[in-house]
Write a protein that binds this DNA or RNA. Sequence first.
DNA 1: CTTACTCTGTAACAATTGTTACCGCAGCTT
DNA 2: AAGCTGCGGTAACAATTGTTACAGAGTAAG
Lengths: 209, 209
Amino acid sequence: MIETIRDAYGSIFEKSLVDEISEVAKLIEFKEGDILIDLGNYIKSMPLLINGAIKIMREDLDTGELLLYFIEKGDTCAMTLTCCIGDQKSKIRAVAETDGLVAMIPIVKMEDWLGKYKSWRTFVFTSYNNRLNEMLAAIDNVAFRRMDKRLYNYLKEMGKITNSKIVSKTHQEIAYELHSSRVVISRLLKTLEIDGKVKLNRHNIELIS
Amino acid sequence: MIETIRDAYGSIFEKSLVDEISEVAKLIEFKEGDILIDLGNYIKSMPLLINGAIKIMREDLDTGELLLYFIEKGDTCAMTLTCCIGDQKSKIRAVAETDGLVAMIPIVKMEDWLGKYKSWRTFVFTSYNNRLNEMLAAIDNVAFRRMDKRLYNYLKEMGKITNSKIVSKTHQEIAYELHSSRVVISRLLKTLEIDGKVKLNRHNIELIS
DNA sequence: CTTACTCTGTAACAATTGTTACCGCAGCTT
DNA sequence: AAGCTGCGGTAACAATTGTTACAGAGTAAG
């Protein structure tokens, strides 16, 4: 177990911190599609992602949901910290985009280490910064870009996350994540295909570099 | 000077921290409309707002700008911390919404105190949390709400910030902040007036409770 | 093979928002 | 008084996005 943690985090934390993490962390495997955190959940421990990818969604009661950003190996979710520390309900939903593995840290330890290890502070702050920047990017998308561009960005990002040219999603699923409707997505995908940017198959979309 | 700091922050920081702050902080007055931080600025110190209100805007090169949120007394801007710590250019613009006063803290001290004072850590984290929550609210607005509702929320928020029923803005200014166009805002304001929710005057808008 | 179901394509239409253009009013300058 | 400028009202139109409806193709189950 210390091996997996050292693999993912050995380069940014000093040895004594890696040891401490290994002592208290609980490793949890997850499968694609698992809902790791749902709206309204109280979070009692902090996740360190070892591998896999997790998508973070915002949901509005009436009007559906919206993909905010992805979390990948070697990162944590600052939105979770928000909840941990503030003892608030989660305002987001975390869903596994791929299979993966996560280490859960008790909050108490997390706060201990803030006073104790500079590398831990840096890590936590870096994570907050990444999250804020990703939120800004999400805002840019919904505020400044039209759906065709958002869709294309989304497809490219999905390709990066899964490290593949094939995006295995139905039009309906994409519509949910971009907070649009299936018909609109089908329409725009068709024009992307006509422009030679993608190839549409049943159940998946192929990115043409 | 220690008086003003104690006034604004004495209730959340221990005395020794307030003293330290008073030693190193530089007080800076600002006037409504001052641009405190602009896109691309490097930030070398951390602002603690003593009084007044600051609006944080996101700008897109081609397509204009968007109001993200306000900062008020007793708070700091985590987006600034992002820049300080990551040594990155600012991705936002901070503009004084009212006259006010801010205490600037050198980054070195700010990092010192993280290890030294638990109350400081709590403060910084709380600020991050507030910012993340406000970013979420901003996303909710642009992603889930239509312009008429966004406009009404905006007016109410402006009323709260300035503690008044009168919002002294032109339609054009509002259009900038909501990333819309003047004609659209005029149109929607007119329907708000017909619905009896506001009264339109020249150069200002009156909220009818 | 038949049936049922999901996924995709398409058309027609509605709603919202953005754009352009023009007009009148208030306030200011000359 | 005349002219200028910025602000706000309105109309007409365009573009984007959302909605409803329906049809055909693929797939899985019986």
